[in-house]
Amino acid sequence: MKRVTLISMIALIFAFSYCIITKSTILYPKVVEAVTYNVGSSNQQVKQIEQRLKQLGFFTGTPDNYYDNNTKNAVIKFQKSKGLKADGIVGDQTLKALNISSNKSSNSNPDTQLLARLINGEGRGEPYIGQVAIGAVVLNRTRDPRFPRTIPGVIYQPGAFTAIADGQINAAIEESPKKAANDAMNGWDPSGGAVFYYNPAKTTNKWIWSRPVIKKIGKHIFTK
């Protein structure tokens, strides 16, 4: 009997310390996307790759947005010269050797990306206009003298968003928040000019309940 208690105690202590260790080391998955360019790829980055290859003397055509066989041959030549695996596919390593930033959304501005991550952390599972409205609330705050003036200022204001406090902002990003951030940045505001929102099921704060309500979208109530 004694032994049973002892063993179960040990087991408990183990379980307990295991919990502590894992809890303190779990990190939200970082947003990393491996990007590759191959024959058939077409976008702005392809042009950049071709321009760089032309500068280095590997590519002879006119740089355009299309990754064709000429591009492939130039890439293989380049890869051979750098001692990389000559597969004609531009991945992270080749991009690095070409001195091109591998950031997929290099032409999207950092504020939009941050906004997308906030929407992702705060409003996953919300209807699309609810997500755009979250983005709009951030932008409305930057234009309100009671709040910080910049997007990072508003998003990282201590206590302003739960997704910041609990690290949800670093969760893997979905497609729809990215789209929503773009629409919000371009002026769409389904919130009707709101500067606050809350989930009535989770909020007990009296002050926020007393704010004049503008709209309810999904689970969130948007207020002045």
Binding site: P145, P148, R149, P158
Partner: peptide, 26 residues
Amino acid sequence: SAAQDKLNSLPISHEALSQTSKFLSQ
């Protein structure tokens, strides 16, 4: 604007801070 920016980086609840923040902004 420097004071407004820094004030908004302190852990003060919005409802308490908003008027001071508005004063400095305006």
